[in-house]
Amino acid sequence: MSTARERILRDLHIALKRGPLAAEQRTALDAERPAHIRPAFDEDLIARFVRKFESRSGTVARVATLAEVPEAVEQYRTAKGLPPRAAIGAALAGLAWPQEWAIHHGAAAIDETLALSRAETGVAETGSLMLCSGPESPTTHNFVPDDHVVVLEAAKVVRHFEDAWVVLRQRPGGIPRATNFVSGPSRTADVEQTIQLGAHGPRRVHVILVGG
């Protein structure tokens, strides 16, 4: 099809001093799944997730059940003085949100102030949230509003990134269009190495940890 493609592949073959690989070799390569070294730790997964996430200026609140989430969000909203409105991923649409809130499940617009997402998993290794795009959790929710509240069920916290890949691979529909690992609020150190939160994305990321 594209001649540049063929020329590059040919140049690669020349560089590798061989022709295209035979079908059996390709199959063998595809079947290879080398496992890599994983940082070892004994710490409790939830405790580590919280410690790591907070170390990067994220905040965490804990509730016992999903039903308690709206109240926890309401507390956060009033504490931060945010208007009663939110972009809420469809994954959380079923919860009993306060009547007086203006809510929607679509993409976040430029004036969006608060978004709520449900994390697919949390990775204890680094204290990172994994968010999967789709109607359940639009990507703009993760980046546009100043405040991002993420609901994470403790049972979903995994040890290493490798465990998150297992979750991704087993998802119906496989890997989503956007898989976002979020490890705290947006930050920059581009002016004189001074760390400043809220460079472009959320100024605050608040996790509501459910159960555990």
Partner: peptide
């Protein structure tokens, strides 16, 4: 690179907006 354990965002992008996606 920056002496961080991880940077804040790591994003995997796989194709364009899908049916039903509100953004992308």
């Amino acid at each position: 690179a920056t002496g961080q354990e991880t940077e804040t965002y790591t994003t995997f992008s796989t194709g364009p907006r899908r049916a039903g996606d509100p953004d992308g």
